[in-house]
């Protein structure tokens, strides 16, 4: 599904990603771990198409198509979803109206009619129940005055509504207490299928107890320095990142 080859990318002459190789297939869950400043969030933003970052070498392919010239909205229409670490507040636009707009724009891009209102409402009800979201929450302005946990839950709600092929969860666990973490992880697990893939970006092993990865990659200084199975996450938890840093130097 996603194939990243020798990806170099940066911002204003500063190279942040220095040769990433990663392949993610349908049905898989990948975790990308690493210390602060290793390039985790940059990687997720580059996959989602943030124009601020420049790809200087290598490629990101989605189902065989090079995404280099593809805008963020077109990537979304092709099934890429990024759950933001810091979701943006949009006063005056309710959660419901926002998600309706997003869904219908994607449908329009695919040459489909707008989703009928009754179908939309049913879908909203189903997905909000999945994430234990109060109905009143849906009429509030998007992310405005939301707690950290509400923002993250709202991100996963949007993911549930948009049903992406490739979901990237950027530090979704930060700012969540254990109950919220469990609800969010539970939601993600229910959305998982053999047809879609999830990339979980996290600093800590905690989230991976709930969303169990098939593969774990360690990012350090813009490169994947180690890959392994889920046991690698436990090892990192125990030993920290320093031993890998040393290994990378060697």
């Amino acid at each position: 599904m996603l194939k990243i080859t020798d990806l170099h990318a940066g911002i204003e002459d500063k190279e942040i990603l220095k040769g990433i190789n990663l392949e993610v297939n349908a049905g898989e869950v990948h975790a990308i771990m690493g210390p602060n400043g290793s390039g985790k969030s940059t990687l997720s933003a580059v996959i989602a198409g943030k124009e601020e970052f420049e790809v200087t070498k290598g490629s990101v392919e989605l189902n065989g198509e090079d995404l280099d010239e593809v805008s963020p909205e077109e990537r979304a229409h092709k099934g890429v979803f990024l759950s933001f670490q810091y979701p943006v507040e949009i006063p005056g636009v309710s959660v419901t109206n926002f998600i309706k707009t997003a869904i219908n724009e994607s449908r329009k891009a695919r040459g489909l009619e707008e989703m009928p209102a009754n179908k939309m409402l049913k879908l909203i009800r189903e997905k909000s129940e999945l994430l234990d979201i109060d109905r009143r929450f849906l009429s509030r302005s998007l992310n405005e005055g939301f707690s950290g946990g509400e923002k993250k839950r709202n991100e996963i709600f949007q993911m549930a509504m948009l049903e992406p092929k490739l979901a990237i969860l950027d530090e979704t666990d930060s700012g969540l207490d254990i109950d919220a973490l469990r609800i969010v992880a539970n939601g993600v697990n229910k959305l998982k299928s053999k047809d879609n893939a999830v990339i979980v970006i996290t600093h800590y092993q905690r989230l991976l107890e709930y969303i169990v990865p098939d593969f774990v990659h360690v990012l350090h200084n813009g490169k994947i320095v180690k890959s392994g199975g889920k046991e690698l996450a436990l090892e990192l938890e125990e030993k920290g990142y320093d031993w890998l840093k040393n290994e990378a130097v060697v």
């Binding site: 933003a45 963020p72 005056g92 707009t101 891009a109």
Partner: peptide, 27 residues
């Protein structure tokens, strides 16, 4: 950043800009 957020949800840039201006004024 706000523009990118909206675009990443599939909202085209032109509409995303308009939506952000709307939110700015609506406040």
């Amino acid at each position: 950043d706000a523009l990118f957020y909206l675009q990443s949800r599939g909202i085209p840039k032109k509409e995303a800009r308009a939506l952000l201006m709307y939110a700015f004024a609506n406040n």
